[in-house]
Write a protein that binds this DNA or RNA. Structure first.
Length: 316
DNA sequence: TTCAACTGGTCTCAGTCGAG
DNA sequence: CTCGACTGAGACCAGTTGAA
């Protein structure tokens, strides 16, 4: 036991009088703003978390989380600590995780990737078999498109996200993976539609559209037609690209989806491709990773694999 | 250097307290 | 009353001490 200059008694391992494990507790406490939930996150009992908060309060000389009514509200000091502490822990995590070499044949790495189900269908269906061949011990977890994919990346909850260029933010490195364009699909036996379609015909049909997450964010096609003042009659809203083509089959409805996704489903479903009534811009899917993982050879390897998996066409 | 006994901090469990 | 934060008792274990 040692006594520090300011009279604090020190036990165990400390960094400038602070037990660094308390930062882990602080991060969980500030993220949850609730002691019980923070304790579950760290697999501790509620009293243990309460004790950690008491030690943090002692160290900082501040309540950090103060009860207001039934809620625990962070103090201004706690607010100002939240971002930097999260950043430090992420830096620690990436530091201890990185190995100078990535040996695919033996590596046991687990990757968490966030992407739309469209990307998982057109990209991961090709990438996963290849990854199993080259890196049999690597495991992959695909996370659904949330309302705030960028926050998941910032918080280090995912290794990378894959999304269209228009949604990327500054501050983290990104790399293009593949391009795609849009097409319409209809049921093969839909007599109302031929190989092409006029805008009037298009707008007269019922549409199947996709919206994501809690906020029900529209997919690009919906945004595009709204933006140009063309009101489509959306009769079916579904939550995933993978269900959308099946909701066109057996109906006179139409859907506007990615070429590559259409190619995929044309192999299984009685669908026909219809050229969109107006020219739609191409989209580029990019992979974005946290700047702290920039030097991670494992991620570099994964990016190379993913790039290999998309052979050039569709965009025409 | 190694080992056993000891020490102190943090854990869990059980229970209390206070707000809504 | 219910829910969630806090408190106290005892267990557990990492780190320290001191002897061989």
């Amino acid at each position: 036991m040692a006594v520090a200059g300011d009279g604090h008694i020190l036990h165990g391992m400390h960094f400038n009088h602070l037990d660094l494990n308390l930062l882990v507790a602080l991060d969980a406490l500030l993220a949850e703003q609730n002691i019980t939930r923070a304790s579950r996150r760290l697999h501790l009992s509620q009293p243990a978390m309460s004790g950690a908060l008491a030690r943090l309060r002692e160290y900082f000389g501040d309540d950090l989380l103060a009860p207001i009514g039934r809620r625990m509200v962070p103090t201004p000091l706690a607010e100002s600590l939240a971002g930097p502490v999260r950043d430090i822990l992420l830096k620690v995590e990436t530091t201890v995780q990185i190995r100078p070499e990535f040996d695919p044949a033996r590596a046991q790495r687990h990757f968490k990737l966030l992407m739309s189900d469209y990307v998982s269908i057109v990209l991961m269906t090709k990438a996963l078999p290849l990854i199993q061949q080259i890196a049999p011990q690597v495991t992959i977890e695909l996370l659904p498109y949330s309302d705030r994919p960028w926050e998941s990346l910032e918080r280090g909850e995912v290794d990378a996200l894959i999304q269209p260029t228009q949604y990327i933010h500054e501050g983290h490195p990104a790399e293009a993976l593949f391009e795609d364009s849009y097409t319409c699909i209809a049921w093969q036996e839909n007599q109302l539609i031929g190989e092409s379609i006029t805008l009037e015909e298009y707008l007269a049909l019922g549409h199947v559209a996709v919206r994501f997450g809690q906020q029900r964010l529209p997919a690009f096609d919906e945004w595009f037609f709204d933006h140009y003042g063309h009101t489509r009659r959306i009769e079916i809203i579904t939550a995933s690209f993978s269900t959308l083509p099946q909701f066109v089959v057996g109906t006179t409805r139409i859907a506007t989806i990615h070429q590559r996704l259409a190619d995929f489903y044309l192999r299984f479903l009685p669908l026909k491709r219809v050229a969109p009534p107006v020219e739609m811009p191409h989209l580029t899917e990019v992979i974005v990773w946290h700047r702290y993982r920039n030097r991670d050879p494992a991620l570099l390897w994964l990016r190379n694999i993913l790039r290999q998996c998309v052979d050039s066409p569709p965009p025409q």
